[in-house]
């Protein structure tokens, strides 16, 4: 399950992390994906300093200008600089994606380990995830937001709930396999408590599958957040998120198609990069997982 290779490696000392990085570096497409992600993250983090204009600054005199040297991605219907708004939008998309991954990973791992390790609870917990997965992602998110109200944190909570079963199912599947391994038997024979077995023996072996799955959750969360904001039930429309930018550009898109093009492309590029990296991680960490759910 860990990144220990089954071929002999020259040189005695190579940490699993180094090996993983080497395997990733061998695939050019994965490197490209990582570079894109690093770039978008850098632009997002440094937006307050790097963005050429303040994202909310309106200049009605220059509204709906096509891309030019002074405004690389043009201006919107209020004369705001599209590039600057995109950079600030990236902050939001990544923040939401990251927090959703944190929420669903913690909750999903907990549920999955309990279901996989505590036999009595397995059936009930898995039927619960079945029930949660019977709702389309976006419908469940919308319903939760209807109850919670709009806003950034509520979007995170809703999407966290939506994606928890995905992590839980993978974690349970891997835990079921791990539980039958000899090292778990050995620990049980030595009198280790259940908590100790979970924390010391199971969790470290769950890291790879969880990391892989969470890159995909990251990607889905960005896409779904954009859709929620587009529908007007997600992030409040005054905040420049990629979904909000597309929503507000709808009215003027036939005069200014770049207003829709730019954020759409940003979403696609980020999501593609995340998926490429996810695929790469999966192949590098464990080829056997390639065909998992």
């Amino acid at each position: 399950m860990s990144a220990v290779p089954n071929v002999a490696v020259p040189g005695p000392k190579r940490s699993p992390t180094m090996l993983l990085l080497r395997r990733l570096a061998r695939r050019r497409i994965v490197v490209a994906g990582l570079v894109v992600l690093a770039l978008v993250v850098a632009l997002a983090v440094l937006a307050p300093w790097l963005a050429p204009y303040a994202p909310q600054r309106m200049q009605v005199a220059i509204r709906l200008r096509p891309p030019s040297l002074t405004h690389l991605l043009g201006t919107d219907e209020f004369g705001r600089d599209v590039l600057s708004r995109m950079m600030h939008g990236a902050r939001l998309s990544f923040l939401v994606g990251f927090l959703v991954v944190v929420v669903s990973t913690i909750a999903g791992t907990l549920l999955g380990v309990i279901a996989g390790y505590v036999r009595r609870l397995d059936g009930a917990l898995m039927r619960l995830t079945d029930a949660m997965m019977a709702f389309p992602d976006i419908l469940l998110a919308i319903a939760l937001l209807a109850a919670l109200g709009p806003g950034l944190l509520n979007v995170v909570v809703a999407l966290g709930v939506v994606y928890t079963p995905r992590i839980a199912r993978i974690v349970r599947a891997v835990t079921l396999v791990l539980r039958e391994q000899q090292f778990v038997d050995a620990a049980e024979a030595l009198g280790a408590t259940r908590t100790r077995i979970v924390v010391v023996h199971l969790l470290p072996n769950l890291i790879s599958p969880v990391v892989v799955q969470s890159t995909f959750v990251f990607a889905y969360a960005i896409l779904t957040e954009a859709a929620l904001s587009f529908l007007g039930v997600g992030i409040p429309p005054t905040v420049p998120s990629w979904g909000n930018m597309i929503a507000s550009a709808q009215q003027v898109m036939h005069q200014a198609p770049w207003l829709v093009m730019a954020p759409g492309m940003a979403i696609a590029l980020t999501v593609v990069a995340l998926q490429v990296v996810g695929d790469g991680l999966r192949d590098a960490l464990d080829p056997r997982l390639r065909r998992a759910v």
Binding site: A227, I246, V260, M261, I267, A268, V271
Partner: peptide, 15 residues
């Protein structure tokens, strides 16, 4: 296929 799966459907619709 990967690109198609990464495009928001509302964006495809508007385009």
């Amino acid at each position: 296929a990967m690109l198609a799966a990464s495009l928001p459907s509302f964006w495809i619709g508007l385009t």
